[in-house]
Computed example of a mutant assay.
Amino acid sequence: MSEQDSAELDTTRPDTRGPDTAGPGLRPDEVGAADSLPALVLLVPASLLLRFLGEHAWAYWTAAVIGVLGLLAAGFGIAAAVGSLRRGRRKLLAGYTVALLLAAGFVLVVRLVEN
C-alpha cells in the first residue's frame, strides 16, 4: 500500500470522539444523575453507622470522618446542580439533586449532634 492510499484511509474515517464525552445527549456543564452518587456513597453508610452503632465511640468517629468527606462531595454536587439550575438546564433533575444532597447532609449532621 502506498503512502497516498494510507493517507486517504486516514482522512476518510470519521472521528468518533466528540467534544461531548459526558454521555449521549449530555453536555459537560449539565447536571446528571451520577452527580449525587459520590456523596451518597459516603453519606448513607455514615448515617447507617450512627443509626445502628452510634453508641460506640469508634462508630461515631468513623461516621464523622466518612460524613465530613461525604459533605465535601455533596458540596461539589450541589454546586454543579445549582450551576445547571442557573443556566436553566435540566431543572427538575438539578432540583432533585440539590434537595437530595441537602436532606442527606442535614440528616447526618442531626444524627452527629444527637449522639
Rank of each mutant, 00 (worst) to 15 (best):
A80D: 14
G75Y: 05
G54V: 01
K91S: 13
G25T: 05
D20K: 08
V68R: 07
L50K: 01
P14K: 08
M1Y: 01
G95E: 13
T21E: 12
V113Q: 02
V44G: 01
L26W: 13
R13F: 14
P45R: 03
V109W: 04
A103W: 10
V41D: 07
V110N: 05
R87A: 15
L53Y: 11
A22K: 07
A80V: 07
E8F: 04
L71T: 03
G67R: 01
Y96T: 11
N115A: 12
L43W: 05
L26P: 00
S84G: 11
L42S: 02
A79T: 11
T21S: 06
D20F: 14
G70L: 03
A59T: 03
Y96K: 06
I78G: 02
A7P: 00
N115R: 15
F52W: 08
A104Q: 10
A34D: 15
F76P: 00
A46S: 05
T16Y: 14
V82Q: 09
A79E: 10
V82M: 10
F52T: 02
G23N: 07
R13E: 13
T21H: 04
E30T: 12
V109F: 06
R17H: 07
D15R: 08
P38F: 08
T21I: 10
D5A: 13
L101R: 08
V98M: 10
A81K: 07
P38D: 06
M1T: 11
V31T: 11
A64C: 06
R87I: 04
T11W: 06
N115M: 13
D29S: 11
D15P: 00
G83I: 03
D35V: 01
D10G: 00
L26N: 02
G67W: 04
L92V: 11
S2V: 02
Y60H: 13
G32N: 04
T16F: 11
D29W: 09
P45W: 01
V98L: 06
L72M: 15
L101K: 05
V113M: 09
G70I: 00
A22H: 06
Y96Q: 06
I66Q: 09
V44D: 06
V31S: 00
V82L: 12
L48N: 13
R86M: 14
G75K: 03
L102W: 07
L112I: 14
D15Q: 12
G70S: 05
F52Y: 13
S47Q: 15
V107L: 11
L40R: 05
A94N: 03
L72K: 00
T62Y: 03
G75R: 01
A99Y: 00
G88T: 12
E3D: 12
L101I: 09
L48Q: 12
W61T: 05
A59H: 09
R89F: 04
L72F: 09
